[in-house]
Computed example of a mutant assay.
Amino acid sequence: MNGAKRPYVVCHMVPSLDGRIVTTGWKLPPSVLGEYERTAQTFNADAWMIGRISMEPYAGKARVPSRQVPHPIPRTDFIARRDAESYAIALDPSGKLTWKSGAIDEEHVITVLTEQVPDDYLAFLQSKGVSYVFGGKTELNLKRVLEKLRKEFGIRKLLLEGGGKINGSFLAADLIDELSVLVAPIADGAIGTPSLFDAKEGKGPARHLKLVSFEKRKGDLLWLRYKLKR
Rank of each mutant, 00 (worst) to 15 (best):
K61L: 11
D198A: 12
A103Y: 04
D119S: 04
G192D: 11
W223V: 09
N167T: 13
I110T: 02
V9H: 02
E178W: 01
L122G: 00
L228C: 01
V10F: 07
T138I: 04
S94G: 04
N44F: 04
C11D: 06
L97W: 02
K5I: 12
G95I: 07
V212C: 13
G192A: 11
L28V: 12
I53F: 07
L171N: 13
W99E: 00
L224E: 05
S86Q: 11
T114E: 10
W26Y: 06
S180P: 06
I79D: 03
I21H: 05
R20M: 12
T76P: 00
G164N: 00
F134L: 08
L113I: 10
R225H: 10
D120G: 08
I166Y: 01
E161Q: 14
V212T: 15
H208V: 09
E201L: 08
W26P: 06
H12V: 14
F78W: 00
E178Y: 00
K96Q: 12
D18I: 01
P65F: 01
L211V: 15
F214A: 15
V181Y: 03
G162Y: 01
K229N: 00
P118E: 15
G163I: 04
K227V: 03
V112F: 11
A40T: 04
Q68S: 12
K27T: 09
P65D: 05
L224S: 00
R225M: 14
F153Q: 06
W223E: 14
L159Q: 12
S86I: 09
L17I: 15
Q41E: 15
R156N: 15
V183L: 07
L224W: 00
A90D: 12
A190K: 07
L222M: 04
I176F: 06
N141T: 08
L17W: 08
K157P: 06
N167P: 09
W48Q: 15
V32G: 15
Q126N: 00
Y8F: 14
F170A: 10
M55P: 05
S86W: 05
P15S: 08
V183P: 03
A45W: 03
Y8Q: 07
K148R: 02
T193R: 10
E56W: 01
R6G: 10
V10A: 11
T98H: 05
L158G: 04
A45Y: 09
F124A: 06
L146T: 10
N2G: 13
K100C: 10
P29G: 08
R230V: 10
I53P: 09
S169C: 06
S66H: 07
A103S: 13
A199N: 02
V10W: 03
S54R: 01
I110R: 00
A190Q: 03
R75H: 01
E178R: 11
A103G: 06
I186Y: 01
K165H: 03
S31L: 10
I166G: 00
A47L: 11
L224Q: 03
T114P: 02
T114Q: 05
Y36A: 05
V22R: 13
R217T: 14
G51Y: 00
A59H: 02
R144W: 07
R82E: 12
Q41M: 14
R82S: 14
D174I: 07
G136M: 06
K157N: 11
Q126V: 08
G51I: 01
G129A: 09
A59Q: 11
K227P: 01
K218E: 15
